[in-house]
């Protein structure tokens, strides 16, 4: 049996470092373009990955943005060591945010992160442990 081609990438994310926020999502986007995914799909993935990456920068201490790309689907994990999410259902509400004022002053933390991820991903799963960290899993089907 021929093994299906798969590519795995991982990009480190530093909590609190807004100067690098988006680097991981941008690099992932380039990879997706090199693979030749439909522009609309790679855009959805990049937007969702960016939101996930940004959440690590805003809320966590450190983390990693991982992706596994196969011809049929793209899976993205945003894993962090951080405070965890106390109320996931509330966090999914548009406009709800626990981002501190200095983050909002930068134009981030408008409470659209998770809603944007849900809108763009085909599957979204959140595992969170208070005081330890969060894993956001997203899956995007390639229907082309």
């Amino acid at each position: 049996m021929v093994e299906q081609a798969v590519l795995e990438v991982a990009y480190q994310v530093v909590g609190g470092d807004f100067s690098q926020a988006g680097d991981g999502a941008s690099r992932l986007k380039r990879v997706l373009q090199q693979i030749g995914l439909a522009p609309a799909l790679s855009r959805r993935i990049a937007v969702a990955a960016y939101e996930a990456e940004l959440n690590i920068v805003i809320h966590a201490y450190s983390g990693v943005l991982k992706a596994k790309v196969s011809p049929v689907k793209v899976e993205v994990w945003a894993e962090d060591q951080g405070p965890g999410i106390p109320d996931v259902e509330l966090a999914m509400k548009e406009g709800y945010s626990t981002a501190p004022d200095h983050v909002r002053a930068l134009g981030f933390g408008a409470g659209m992160g998770l809603p944007n991820m849900r809108r763009n991903a085909d599957e979204l799963e959140i595992k969170t442990v208070l005081g330890e960290g969060t894993i956001v899993y997203m899956c995007f089907a390639n229907r082309a």
Binding site: A5, L7, R30, Q33, I35, G36, L37, S70
Partner: peptide, 12 residues
């Protein structure tokens, strides 16, 4: 940017 027209080959 696309490395190959075939997605499997591009991934490789």
């Amino acid at each position: 940017l696309q490395l190959d027209a075939n997605i499997e080959v591009a991934l490789q």
